[in-house]
Amino acid sequence: MENRIIDLFRKKKKNILSVFTTAGFPNLTDTVPVITQLAKEGIDMIEIGMPFSDPVADGDTIQASNKIALDNGMSLEVLFDQIKNIRVHVDIPLILMGYLNPVYQYGIEAFCKKASEIGIDGLILPDLPLDLYLEDYAEIFKKYHLSNILLITPQTSPTRIRQIDEASEGFIYMVSSNSITGKSSGISDQQKEYFQRIEAMNLKNPKIIGFGISDRATFSTACAHAEGAIIGSAFIRALTTDENLPNQIRAFAQSIKQELR
């Protein structure tokens, strides 16, 4: 079957809105309702965060959501069980995102097999760098038709960007600034220069900008330079346990999408 990520980028070339959510947050059983509601609201793609005890690339918001999810009892076992029938309701691309160790403990091959059976389209494992991916993981990912989404940052050299572009299938995750997740105070001129520099490289893969995209303004700036953007911390902040979840998600989606429709 066709990889849904590739399919999405073939059909839609701009304003792709992707949302990151932490599995098992805010309540353990919210994983599927959150994904389903995001899809209903017309979100184009979802990153499902697999919580980890030591998320070094994440800021306070996602750190806290990881901790809450783990305290709620989330694990890869539980997650796979929760989402085993997700493809009955949801047909947008779904990506699993998380740190390497839990995946490594599950067993790389077993993990990829399971993810693929469920209908997951791609993986983002920030602490699995390019060389180790190519050496030890690429074949397994390919066997199970999973796109490996690699990151680039403002510090990544042009040569390395070309290598990452070559090794990528689906899209490239452009980290918007030198930072962990959840830092945002708008998008600076320096960041725009970086976006333009990458645009001018005419990479073969589409690009999605993430980290620090938090509202309509930052989303549309990002979309001016890439096919779309990912919102993570701002979405996590929008979820609370004391209100009706679908309403919170609808309000969030509308706050971002309003003028882009």
């Binding site: 030591d54 403990q105 602490d127």
Partner: peptide, 20 residues
Amino acid sequence: KPGILHGSKTILMQTNDGQV
């Protein structure tokens, strides 16, 4: 048992689910 933390693969105290 073997696992990955702080940038290297090493022996790591962790749960079965790979949480440190």
